[in-house]
Design a protein around this nucleic acid. Sequence first.
DNA 1: CTTAAAGTCTCTAGTGACTAGAGGTTCAAG
DNA 2: CTTGAACCTCTAGTCACTAGAGACTTTAAG
Lengths: 141, 141
Amino acid sequence: MSEFYSIGQLSKLAECKVPTIRWYEDKGLLPAPTRTEGNQRRYTKRHLTTLRFIRHARALGFDLPAIEKLQQLNGCCYGDHIEADRIAQEHLDDVRNKIAKLKAMEAELVAMIEGCDYEHSHKCRILDVLADHGLCGSDHQ
Amino acid sequence: MSEFYSIGQLSKLAECKVPTIRWYEDKGLLPAPTRTEGNQRRYTKRHLTTLRFIRHARALGFDLPAIEKLQQLNGCCYGDHIEADRIAQEHLDDVRNKIAKLKAMEAELVAMIEGCDYEHSHKCRILDVLADHGLCGSDHQ
DNA sequence: CTTAAAGTCTCTAGTGACTAGAGGTTCAAG
DNA sequence: CTTGAACCTCTAGTCACTAGAGACTTTAAG
């Protein structure tokens, strides 16, 4: 078994685009790998694990600074566990806030679209509502 | 009643920051107002109406190209109504997609946080799950 | 061994919708 | 007339990438 992956191989294995890998290295999330004599990157299994960690955390919506903090915790002591929990909980709150906002948007959009009875009124409620916040029910920001 | 607003007054009336107003003008969403001899902007009620339309549409999550299209519809003919409806519906689908994705994230975050029983296992499930996608249930991207 | 194709390198610029700041000018009140 | 708030333009920064240019390296076929 060959020990090294090129950036393209790593890209396929981790389902992460090549420029994104380089970008993570640039930002310090993925350690710089060794290079060939011709200056091309050669990665190890460890890099693959790290990259998968990053991608998984991204898929869950963590931002890069949070991921960097999570990486520094290795989970072997109680403090690490508490801190990981705090970061995850904070992010969960964030996600829930976003959901709430989007649901408010959704409700208002539905009301707007369904309330539009052009056939009868010959006025488009969608454009009316947009023009006048007073015409819509909720107090979105 | 004075006919004109300064950019600061408009800002307060429309609850929109001053640089944002200038930026909308730059992007062609808000018509360029007249200027004083000293080159300061002077807005009319019409500008206020337009700016409120933009802000309301933004609050509902429409992006600027969509808002520009909506502005060009005045709602007085059937075609306008159909088009406004199409744009709104498309955006609603978008919003619902985002909600679905966030809910998937939420579920997985909750599972991760609640499944973390550090007291017993002395391993932090949060970090474990992030390191290995296989440990989590869903097929988020 | 040569050659061609595919892969890789660095660097810059663009995305969306603003926001922040520098450095200078104008307005309105007293 | 002075002062200070508001205004002007322009540039750069945000986030997490993505796209592209132009040059170099690696790999597989012949």
